[in-house]
């Protein structure tokens, strides 16, 4: 997932929205994904996510994100198909395992929900500067600054740690550790000990960041320290209405089908 949470500069319609509106849109799409039990509606939400990516000029990243989720989706799909036994039996397998139509339907549902709920937050973070998100949480939602800072720092550190892990994997591969194996189980077994260097570097980085923040007057900051104003304009109202319509549609589709 390296790079998926990095901010992509731009001046698109979505870029210019209030960070709170973008957060609301992302959350509403997630909520709609969990409310809806209709496969077609979930596919439409995935297409909507891709559309959002295209509008914000990050369509390639949206597709890459989809590809990144694909491996996880395949694992979840197989687990669902093999262990859910509702419905009619379609295929009988050894070890008393059988595939049912209910299992397949449930597997698709879980996979679609996973994709639909993951994409909007990643896309929202790609088009929102992390400082703006932090400021809007403090000024508009009245969240105490230390908590908003903790949340945004955690998000900011995701690509940093992903980069660090890549470096660790490279360092260990260079020593002859077979991390370039295609055997997923062997790879997991080899990756686990690498959590030690990752943990050590993470703790060192966090300690450094904490000292740096304190030296720059972290505790002196109040909600009035932010000079930027985050106004809600007509564009924001339109997007908020669209968000409500999305959730409403999910409820409506659920009640009809």
């Amino acid at each position: 997932m390296k790079g998926f949470f990095d901010y992509v500069p731009g001046s698109s319609y979505l870029h210019r929205l209030n960070p709170l509106t973008k957060l609301l849109l992302a959350l509403m799409i997630c909520i709609a994904a969990f409310i809806s039990a209709n496969h077609l509606f979930l596919v439409m939400l995935i297409v909507l996510n891709l559309g959002i990516g295209a509008q914000a000029g990050i369509f390639t990243r949206s597709v890459m994100l989809l590809k990144g989720l694909l491996k996880l989706c395949i694992i979840i799909f197989l687990l669902q198909v093999l262990f859910i036994r509702d419905g009619n039996v379609l295929v009988k397998l050894p070890l008393n395992i059988f595939i049912t139509d209910g299992g397949i339907s449930s597997a698709f549902m879980v996979v679609f929900r996973l994709v639909t709920a993951t994409m909007p937050l990643a896309l929202m973070l790609s088009i929102t500067q992390i400082n703006d998100l932090s400021n809007v949480l403090v000024t508009k939602l009245r969240i105490p600054y230390p908590y908003a800072f903790a949340l945004t720092t955690a998000i900011r550190f995701i690509p940093v740690f992903a980069n660090e892990m890549t470096g660790i994997i490279e360092a260990q591969t260079s020593r002859g550790v077979q991390l370039d194996t295609r055997n997923i189980f062997k790879k997991i077994k080899l990756v686990l000990p690498l959590c030690v260097p990752l943990l050590i570097t993470s703790v060192r980085k966090i300690e450094g960041s904490a000292i740096s923040a304190e030296l720059r007057g972290f505790h002196l900051r109040t909600k009035n320290s932010c000079y930027k104003k985050y106004a809600v304009n007509i564009n924001d109202i339109c997007v908020i209405m669209i968000s409500v319509v999305i959730v409403g549609s999910a409820i409506l589709v659920n009640s009809i089908f």
């Binding site: 470096g167 591969t173 260079s174 060192r204």
Partner: peptide, 21 residues
């Protein structure tokens, strides 16, 4: 594979913390 080439090449990275485990 890099892990096979590692039998011939030793690589010291700038940051030792990435290597020590």
């Amino acid at each position: 594979k890099s892990s096979i080439l590692a039998r011939h090449i030793g690589f010291l990275f700038q940051n030792p913390d990435r290597q020590i485990c």
